[in-house]
Write a protein that binds this DNA or RNA. Structure first.
Lengths: 139, 139
DNA sequence: TATTGTTATACTCTATAACTATA
DNA sequence: TATAGTTATAGAGTATAACAATA
């Protein structure tokens, strides 16, 4: 494990580096940080509790409190106590938040541009390889 | 472009998300931030100037100043004026810095584990697909 | 008593603007 | 005057510990 990285490891590093940089740029163009854009992304499928967001974003609950507070002050999300258990706060994306989120995705051209360089067959192949890398016993 | 993400786009997102999370964890286990680990990584191939580091890390020069200052105070890098042009500072990794950098790479199991689930032929294929995604006119 | 979320605090990352030193 | 880097400053991301509200 002390040998130099294989070309494939380096290629993966470069791909991820480019992907991250493109996402940061896309979020910034929409006036958001990457963390804020990720949080909005989590909410597009429906509302979440603070704790669910912390789990999804792999960060501490106190961090979510601050991220949500900033987004709420800009009118991009709302935060309301759950009627059933009033300790729980349900966070929802607002129409303005959805617009910002769409703006990020429009600006985030990296995956689309990369994938478009592959034929349909190559795309299927890549999908299969990613699935197999993800967990043992792929298709 | 308003349609939901294709499965492949989602797979790429998930891959990058897992990769980033694994790198953050690996750096933290070595007592470094991801940004610090990246900076050390840049120096393993030889010394760099502050400006070169800013370019490689896609960030402002003033940020590099602070990153290097923290690493220098921990003895992981050195910073010395270039004899030829004393405005320029040459940053080098120390033996202690190399040890930390190796610790990060040992803990960063994600790419190795992922790639090891592929056969040699599949790895070649993935390499070819990544190359083609990178720029038009692949092999 | 246990759980959910917030507050207080501290540290790092990051950029902008003003500055110093050197060329 | 132009360039390389630093300093001052400010805002955002992040975590830990102590806390409040609710269950």
């Amino acid at each position: 494990m002390t040998e130099p990285s294989s070309p494939l490891d380096q290629q993966l590093w470069d791909f991820v580096y480019g992907y991250d940089a493109a996402y940061d740029r896309a979020a910034q163009q929409a006036g958001l940080s990457a963390a804020q854009a990720c949080l909005l992304d989590q909410l597009t499928g429906g509302s979440s509790t603070m704790g669910e967001l912390a789990t999804a974003l792999l960060c501490d609950a106190s961090n979510v409190t601050q991220l949500v507070a900033r987004l709420e002050s800009r009118g991009l999300v709302t935060r309301e106590p759950d009627p059933a258990d009033r300790r729980v706060k349900r966070v929802s994306i607002t129409p303005a938040g959805r617009r910002e989120h769409r703006a990020v995705h429009r600006a985030f051209a990296f995956p689309a541009e990369s994938v478009d360089r592959l034929t349909a067959g190559e795309q299927q192949l890549l999908s299969r390889l990613l699935a197999k890398m993800r967990r043992p016993g792929g298709s």
